[in-house]
């Protein structure tokens, strides 16, 4: 594995970085969808974020990275209380992956050689308490998508096949990236992502040059570059950790709730998921900025992230959905 690029050294792409930080603060937000052109640093950002996050402590040998022995699934047969530190898991879900690889299946090796019926955990088990990253999510096969949605929502992976009956926790942040030119995402899946970001190649020449400069410096001397950005990364990490701790104390008054509802009604987003995500994202942002209570500034900043993928398609509006959200935010919040 190559060393990931430092998160704070990513030039521009503030919306994407913000969305990722918010999910790191509140994993319950429900994942990030990053749509954009090729070569805009989508994959780089995901891997960088994982490297930025503090390691998790997990029971040694536990296939689902459980924090305590009580949380370890029975079938794993863990009999130790020893904990180890592991980096926050980031699991890649490749296209064309089989269902067996995702959910886990009968351990063929043990079945063949020892005649035992054992469970071989899949990608979902490994992604527990971490990130599940799907590049080109719009090209993923439908049945895998359905399965992921189901697990992401319930937080539990249930395998009932080949005479196995297994369940284990699978709580992960779903990060999907893709290029809309290659195919759209089904609306059902779109809605399940908490936040969405559209990234573009920077148009400003200076910014582009800075991207190339940093990347080149990184490629030539990764260690030197990392140590240069270490302090900056540590700062972000520290803020995320503090925000996690403060999240529960961040206050939300009725006015903020009313704002959320009014925004969603004005935009005509379906269901109530929009309001909930907006609220949680706003609160995470408030905690990140070190504010005590959720206010309109926070909502304004997170509204495009939380709502732009929940709008109905309007063929006559040439403006991107992010612009439409911004316009409505201005109208509603003044």
């Amino acid at each position: 594995m190559t060393t990931p690029f430092p998160f704070s050294a990513i030039v521009g792409q503030d919306q994407m970085k913000l969305a990722m930080i918010l999910t790191a603060i509140d994993p319950g937000l429900g994942g990030v969808l990053v749509f954009g052109d090729r070569g805009t640093g989508k994959s780089t950002a995901v891997r960088a974020l994982a490297a930025l996050l503090p390691p998790i402590t997990a029971i040694k040998g536990c296939p689902v990275n459980a924090a305590t022995r009580a949380d370890c699934p029975d079938w794993a047969g863990i009999e130790t209380d020893e904990v180890v530190e592991r980096p926050t898991p980031v699991v890649d879900l490749p296209l064309g992956v089989t269902e067996d690889r995702v959910t886990g299946a009968l351990d063929i090796e043990r079945a063949l050689t020892q005649g035992e019926k054992a469970f071989e955990p899949g990608l979902l088990a490994r992604a527990n308490r971490g990130y599940l990253y799907i590049d080109e999510v719009n090209l993923l096969e439908d049945h895998i998508v359905d399965l992921l949605l189901d697990v992401a929502q319930s937080g539990e992976n249930v395998v009932e096949r080949e005479g196995l009956s297994i369940r284990h926790p699978a709580r992960f942040v779903l990060v999907g990236s893709g290029n809309p030119e290659e195919g759209e995402l089904r609306p059902q899946l779109l809605d399940r992502f908490g936040l969405s970001v559209e990234v573009r190649s920077p148009t400003d020449i200076e910014e582009r040059i800075e991207v190339i400069r940093r990347r080149d410096a990184f490629d030539r001397d990764a260690d030197g570059f990392l140590s240069k950005w270490q302090a900056e990364d540590a700062k972000v990490r520290h803020r995320i950790l503090r925000a996690r701790a403060d999240l529960a104390e961040t206050e939300t008054d009725d006015d903020a709730l009313r704002d959320c509802a009014q925004l969603c009604v004005a935009l005509g987003s379906d269901g109530l998921r929009g309001e909930l995500t907006l609220l949680r994202a706003g609160r995470a942002l408030a905690a990140y900025r070190g504010d005590d209570a959720l206010d309109r500034d926070h909502l304004r900043a997170v509204a495009p992230l939380a709502l732009s993928h929940r709008l109905r398609r309007d063929p006559l509006d040439d403006a991107g959905s992010a612009t439409r959200v911004a316009r409505t935010v201005d109208e509603v919040l003044g």
Partner: peptide, 8 residues
């Protein structure tokens, strides 16, 4: 050329 991979 939009992609930043090209100049790199």
């Amino acid at each position: 050329i939009d992609s930043l991979r090209a100049p790199l």
